[in-house]
Simulated assay, not measured.
Amino acid sequence: MGIGLVHSKQKLSARIGNVSATANVPKGHVAVYVGEGDRKRFVIPISFLNRPLFQDLLARAEEEFGFNHPMGGLTIPCSEEYFIRITTILNGSN
Rank of each mutant, 00 (worst) to 15 (best):
M1W: 12
G2S: 15
I3T: 06
H7G: 04
H7K: 11
K9C: 09
Q10F: 10
K11C: 06
K11W: 05
L12C: 05
L12A: 09
S13A: 14
A14C: 07
R15C: 09
G17I: 07
G17W: 04
N18V: 12
V19L: 14
S20P: 03
A21W: 03
A21Y: 09
A21M: 09
T22C: 10
N24A: 11
V25E: 02
K27C: 08
K27H: 11
G28D: 03
H29C: 00
H29K: 00
V30N: 01
V30C: 01
V30T: 06
V30R: 01
V32A: 01
V32Y: 01
Y33D: 07
V34H: 02
G35V: 03
G35S: 02
G37M: 03
D38S: 08
R39L: 02
R41L: 10
R41W: 03
R41I: 06
F42I: 04
I44G: 00
P45N: 13
I46M: 12
I46Y: 06
L49A: 03
L49C: 10
N50T: 11
N50W: 04
R51Y: 06
R51P: 00
P52I: 10
P52H: 04
F54V: 07
F54R: 00
D56K: 14
D56W: 05
L58M: 14
R60N: 09
R60I: 02
A61N: 07
A61E: 02
E63Y: 04
E64T: 09
E64G: 02
F65L: 09
F67W: 06
H69F: 07
H69E: 02
M71S: 15
G73Q: 13
G73M: 08
L74M: 11
L74H: 14
L74A: 10
S79G: 14
E80V: 15
E81R: 12
Y82P: 05
I86L: 13
I86N: 04
T87K: 06
T87L: 10
T87S: 13
T88L: 10
I89Y: 13
I89C: 10
G92T: 07
G92Y: 08
S93K: 07
N94T: 07
